[in-house]
Design a protein around this nucleic acid. Sequence first.
DNA 1: TTTCAGGTACGATGCAAGTCGTACCTGAAG
DNA 2: CTTCAGGTACGACTTGCATCGTACCTGAAA
Lengths: 111, 111
Amino acid sequence: MAGKNLVGPEADALDLGAVFRALADEHRRSVIARLAADHSDSERGCNSFDLPISKQTQTHHFRVLREAGLVDEIDYGNRKGIRLRRADIERRFPGLLALLGAEPPGGTAPR
Amino acid sequence: MAGKNLVGPEADALDLGAVFRALADEHRRSVIARLAADHSDSERGCNSFDLPISKQTQTHHFRVLREAGLVDEIDYGNRKGIRLRRADIERRFPGLLALLGAEPPGGTAPR
DNA sequence: TTTCAGGTACGATGCAAGTCGTACCTGAAG
DNA sequence: CTTCAGGTACGACTTGCATCGTACCTGAAA
């Protein structure tokens, strides 16, 4: 019931390469951009992003985001929530999240 | 003798996805980090970075950096120079270059 | 002109990554 | 218990990408 918090890297261990690799994908970047735009930093359901990809692929992307240290994932068994690790990101890479707002809302048109 | 300036995207056309993809690679990130650390922004020889990779691969990486809009490449025929597009980058993605300094000098150990 | 070092072009290779199909698990609601 | 939707595990496929080998180009210097 409580939900298990899946493990990610410590705040000090955030790797810029992994972060850039995670944010290089349009889908993952749009997720982080939307989380960053909501300053309440509340937990959010994993299927509330309307990503135009299959469930399995979404699982993959959320895992990459967690392993890069950008989000916490909370596992409730039959559903899952994620929360932006804003404080950790801002401490280690100040200004990074603000950059995501420099993109048009819909993101760059896919090739 | 003058050197031809190879083409890259306009300042307004810088794409965050392409930039993140370019900076996801350790070698390219180390090049940009070193350029960003030198505030004189002078032109620099392409083989002054001591990258532990072949000539052909270096050609590839510098092309990626240019196509992402991060550097200008000046072709002199039998040698080449690059220059950081600091103003364009700062205008479009303020604070991005500062993030590269948040990494230890040697960068993360290569896999 | 010949030599030479820096750079490019093209192709091949190996590996990482995005995507999905099938099967299965999990907890909540009937 | 049964049903059902959200999520995962595993595997396959495809694409992208970092890397290098071979061959060639370019300009400077001997």
